[in-house]
Design a protein around this nucleic acid. Structure first.
Ligand SMILES: [Mn+2]
Ligand SMILES: [Mn+2]
Ligand SMILES: [Mn+2]
Ligand SMILES: [Mn+2]
Lengths: 218, 218
DNA sequence: TAATAAAGTTAGATAAATCTAAATAAAATT
DNA sequence: AATTTTATTTAGATTTATCTAACTTTATTA
């Protein structure tokens, strides 16, 4: 069994692995976990000892199969709880992350199995992120950033790459939530902002915002 | 804020306070929490420092108002989660305690508020125990042990004073679950066991079992 | 390539929660 | 009242997770 703290390190390493190509750096972990690099080094030794990561001094880390499976399971729990909070307890999508950060550490495989069943074996969480199944499998179709659509190209908002409450609330406000159909009109050369057609209405959003909205374009 | 460990100590002190008249003893706490008396003493100093208990060396402890409010809130969370597990996720009443022991420490007043609302502001958990409301209030009507009913006296099973899985499964098996109407026939002098009438069927249960079944007799 | 900067590690401390063994206080018995 | 037993506390360690300050390695740049 892994401690609460170990689980958080594994989860962070997992998420960082998906953002970079090579190994995950000590300082990157320290940043995410809000701790000191020295503390990260200590924990890396411990996780390596437990065969959860591959660690070479000064060379960063990667997850072992065992470490990856553990991390994916935590992500599964996190996302199932987030969906439960939104669907059953009527939370908004910007309110659930912090609570799920705690709930994800509750250790009861049966509880998660029942929660999954109750929710109807869902494939995505309230932010569009895929929910791994009991075996850790999930599909992550290649999505395109809204900021990268070509003029006249259409798509559906299916995810976000930024989960802060302020960002999610803003999307809510401008009605660019999951499931919304969007057509690109043009990218403004001056500032990279985009003009869009959303349900027959023209809208402009900044490059920053558009780059965090993920589209399915088929 | 109290740590996970501090919360468990407070909860145990609270439950023990309701079983005894005077102060709660060091060894009693150590027993319940499965730790050493020396560790309890250490924690008592810490909780006293935080004004959560009244502690006099060698004289046992009592909860302060602040400590009691904290403990009652943990009990509230525990019981709401137990009811949720039974009502929504289809757990049996003998399966929920251990999971609730973890869930009760998740710290989100809004989550508990929403859970309470979702469950319809219930008054009792799956074992018949009262669920304190948001302000810590609850009613605990005086209940009588099934073993104490007089011959021909009738009552309804509304609680249990033993929460082990084996006991609860046994009650399930002999159909003496919450809500069941029971009439006392006689107490067998030899072994204290009781002959009962349960839905037109005669049943005999041991004194031990009968003493853990709580009745409303109106 | 030598100097500098950035990244990462080590050594030694600290706080929380626990333990064992020894000491002390309170309660129960003679 | 003295003795014995039981309950509780203290002293000193241990484990986990963290930190600061100093040091080492790797990467960058001149
Ligand atoms: Mn989240
Ligand atoms: Mn999410
Ligand atoms: Mn319980
Ligand atoms: Mn209960």
């Amino acid at each position: 069994m892994e401690s609460y703290t170990e689980e958080n390190y594994l989860k962070v390493i997992y998420h960082l692995s998906n953002l970079t190509t090579g190994t995950v750096q000590t300082n990157a972990i320290a940043d995410k976990i809000q701790t000191r690099p020295a503390s990260v080094t200590d924990m890396m030794k411990k996780l390596a000892e437990k065969q959860l990561i591959n660690y070479v001094k000064y060379q960063g880390v990667t997850l072992t199969e065992k470490g990856k499976a553990t991390a994916v399971n935590i992500v599964r729990k996190h996302r199932l709880w987030e969906l439960f909070l939104v669907k059953t307890l009527n939370f908004k999508w910007d309110e659930v992350h912090e609570i799920a950060e705690e709930l994800e550490h509750v250790n009861s495989p049966l509880l998660i199995e029942r929660l999954d069943e109750y929710l109807g074996y869902p494939k995505n969480d309230p932010h569009g992120d895929p929910i791994p199944d009991k075996n850790g499998n999930f599909d992550s179709p290649a999505l395109v950033k809204l900021s990268k659509l070509k003029p006249a190209e259409k798509g559906i908002v299916v995810g976000v790459s930024e989960h802060s409450s302020s960002f999610l609330k803003y999307l809510e406000k401008i009605k660019l939530t999951l499931g919304t159909a969007v057509e690109m009109i043009e990218v403004i050369e001056f500032d990279g902002s985009v003009d869009l057609l959303v349900e027959d209405t023209r809208k402009n959003v900044s490059r920053e915002v558009a780059s965090h909205i993920l589209m399915r374009t088929n």
